[in-house]
Design a protein around this nucleic acid. Structure first.
Lengths: 213, 213, 213, 213
DNA sequence: AATGAATGAGCATTCATTCAT
DNA sequence: TATGAATGAATGCTCATTCAT
C-alpha cells in the first residue's frame, strides 16, 4: 500500500502532464493545472521532477527510447524488405496508438527551442535517425545519400504520428470510427505507401535521384 | 514616409511574431518579446491585432488560405495524374519553402487546443481537406472512402512540412546543403513517393483496402 | 501633477524599501510587503527597478556616492588636520544622520555575498577607500602603509555607523535623548577620538607600528 | 562511533549554518542549503534546533556569552588602564579572530528585527554593555555620562568586528597579508587608538563634553 | 536518530491587457 | 497612432516545517 501509493503521486503527475501537454502544448500548461488535476501538492512537481521542464524531459526521453527499441526489435524479425516494412510500421503504429499522448508531446516538442532539453533532443534524434537509416538500407536505397535520407527519414517518422495529431479533429468533423479494424487497415496502407513509393524511387532515372544531378 | 512607416509597424509585429512562434511555439512567446524585437510599443499589439491570439489567428488564416489557393491553382494545370501530382507537390514545396516559418506555426498550431481559434482551425481544415479530396480523386482512389482519405490527407501534409520542422536540426547535425538543387530533387522524390505509393495502394487486393473488411 | 505623481510611485517604492531593509535586512523583506506599504502594484517594482535586487543596488550606489561626495567636499575646507578632521566627521555624521536608514542598509549590505551587486560593492568600496586615504594622509600617517590603512579605514566607518545601528535599541533600554545637542557633542567626541588616537599612533615607537616589525 | 557521529550531526549543522549565515545573512540562507552542506537530513534541523531560528539563537547566545567572558577575564588581569586596555583588546581580537564567522553573524544580527530572538538580543546587549561600562570606568571617564557611554560603548564593540566584516573584501582588492604579525600589530594600533583617543576626550574643555552643554 | 514524502503558504517575477495622455 | 504607467492575475518555484515510518 505505502510503496504503491508513494509511487502513485509521481506517476499521477507524469500521466496528467502528458495528457495536458498533448492537448495544449508544453508552454501553455501550468504546474498548478497539473498539480490540481493529479491531486498532488504543487511542490511535488519540483520535488520529483526538478521543475516543469523535468517532466517534459522525462516524456521526451521515454518516448524516443521506447520508439527506438520497438523499431529495432521489429527490424530483426523479417527477412525480405516487404516483411521488414510491415513489421516496422506495424510496431510503430501499435506503440504510438498505445502511447498516443506521449508520442504527440514528444513529436510536438522536437522542432521547438527549449534550451533545457536541447541536448536530450539531439540525443534522441541521433538515436532514432540511426534506426531509420537501417530501415532505409533494408529498402534498397543508397545509405550514403544524405539528401535522400534527410527527406525519407523524417517522412517515415512523422507519417504515423501526423495521423494521430489530427485524428481527434477528424473524428469530430467527419464521422470516422478509429477502431481496431481501422488500424489494421492503416498499417497495410502505410506500409504499402512506403514500400511502393520507395520502390518507385529506386526506379527513377539516375539523373533525377542522384545527388547534385 | 508616414504611410509606409505606419504600415510597417503592423507588418513588423506580424513578421516578428511568426518568427518567434515558429521557434518557440505560440504559448512560450510573450507580447513583450514580440514588441521589443519588432521595435514597437507593447500596446500596439492589442491595437492592431486585438491581443496576442489575434496575431496567431491571422497567421493561421493567411497560411491555410494561401496554401489552399496554391494547390487549387496547381491542380488546374495538369491533365494526367502524374503531371497533376508533380504540379501540386511542386506548388506545395515552393510555397512552404518561401513561407517556412508561417507554415511551421500554422502546422504546429493545428493539433493544439486554443479555444479562441478553434473555429478558424476547423474552417481551415475543411478547406484544405477539400483540396486534398480533389487530389485523391485525381489519383484514382475512391473519393467516398473516408478512412483512406483520413489517412492520405495528413500523410501528404506531413510529407511536406516535417522536412522543414527538422531542417535546421539536420543542417546542424549532418552537413547538408539545402539549396535550390536540393529542393528540385525534393519535389521529385515527394511526388514519386506519392504517385508510386498510391498506385501501389490501388493494386492492393480488395479485402485489404476495403472499409471494414 | 502628472510628472510628480508618476515619479511618486517610484520614489515611494524606494523609500519604503529603504525603511524595511534597514529594519529587517534585505533578504527578509518581500516585494509584497514593499508594494503593500508603498501602496503600489507589485509589478511596479520590476517595472521601475528590474526586480528587488535593483532597489538594493540603487540604495547602495546612492549612499556611497553621496557619502563620498560629502567627505571630499568637507576635506577641501580645512587647513590644519584638526579642522579637516572636524569638518569631515561633522559631514559624515550629518549625512548619516539625515539618511540613517539608507546608511544602515548600505553598511549592512557590504559584507554580504549578493552576487548581483558584487561589482557595485567593489566599486563603492574603492571609491570610499580613496577618500579615506586622503583623510589618513592629512592626519600625517604613512599613506603607503596598507596595513595601517586597512585598519583605520573601517575603524572610522564603524565609529560613525555603529552608533546608528544600535541607537534605537539604546533609546529603548536606556533613556537617552538623541537630539541636535547630542549630535553636536557626538561630532566632537568622534573627532577627538580620531585625532588624539591617531596622534597617539604617531608617537608609538617605530618597532611597534612598522610593517612586519 | 555512534555517540560521536550523533553529536557530529548537530555540530555539523551548527558549523555549516554559522558559515552560511556569515556569508549570506540569516534570512538569505535556507534550511535545505544548510542540511545539504552539512550532509544531514532536513528534518534534523527542526529536531535539534526547533527550526532555523533556533540555530541563530544558539549562535547569538554563544558568541556574546563567550565574548563577555573573555572581556571580564582580561579585565581582571591588569592594574593600570594601559595594561587593562591592551589586555582587553588583545582578548577581543584573539577571540573574534578565532571565531570570525560566529562574531560576524552575531554582530550582523544585532540591529535586525527578528522577533523570535528579540529577548535574547536584549539580554546579550545588556550583558556586554555591562562589561563595556567597567572598561570605560577604568579608562577614567564618567560612568554616569550615558551619552558618552552610548557613543563609546558601541564604538569599542564594533571597532574590532568591522575589520573582520571587510577583511575578505580588502584582501581581494588590495594585497594585504592578514597573518599573525598583522594581528599583533593590529592589537597595538587598536589599543593605542582607544587609549589615546579616550585620554584626549578627558582633556576636552568641560563645555564640550558635558551633557546638554 | 534518522528518513523522505508531503504540506500550504510564500517567494520574485512576468503575463496580457488597459487607459489616460 | 503612439506612449508608458498601471493593473491584477498567473507564472514556476522554494520556503520552513511536519509526520508517519
Amino acid at each position: 500500500m505505502t510503496q504503491e501509493e508513494k509511487q502513485a503521486a509521481r506517476t499521477r503527475i507524469l500521466k496528467t502532464a502528458v495528457s495536458l501537454f498533448a492537448r495544449k502544448g508544453y508552454a501553455a500548461v501550468g504546474v498548478r493545472e497539473i498539480a490540481a488535476q493529479a491531486e498532488v501538492n504543487i511542490s511535488m512537481i519540483s520535488y520529483y521532477f526538478n521543475g516543469k521542464v523535468g517532466i517534459l524531459a522525462e516524456i521526451v526521453d521515454e518516448f524516443w527510447e521506447n520508439y527506438h527499441r520497438h523499431i529495432v526489435k521489429a527490424m530483426d524479425r523479417g527477412e525480405t524488405p516487404e516483411i521488414k516494412i510491415h513489421a516496422i510500421t506495424g510496431a510503430m503504429v501499435d506503440y504510438v496508438r498505445e502511447n498516443k499522448e506521449l508520442a504527440l508531446v514528444a513529436f510536438h516538442t522536437m522542432p521547438l527551442e527549449i534550451p533545457e532539453i536541447a541536448n536530450l533532443k539531439q540525443k534522441s534524434l541521433m538515436k532514432i535517425m540511426g534506426s531509420v537509416q537501417s530501415l532505409i538500407a533494408s529498402l534498397g536505397l543508397d545509405i550514403n545519400d544524405l539528401q535522400l535520407f534527410s527527406i525519407i527519414g523524417p517522412a517515415i517518422m512523422s507519417l504515423i504520428v501526423t495521423h494521430f495529431r489530427l485524428r481527434d479533429f477528424q473524428a469530430k468533423v467527419f464521422d470516422i470510427n478509429f477502431d481496431d479494424a481501422f488500424y489494421e487497415r492503416y498499417k497495410i496502407i502505410i506500409a504499402t505507401l512506403l514500400l511502393e513509393g520507395v520502390q518507385g524511387l529506386a526506379r527513377l532515372p539516375k539523373s533525377n535521384t542522384e545527388k547534385n544531378a
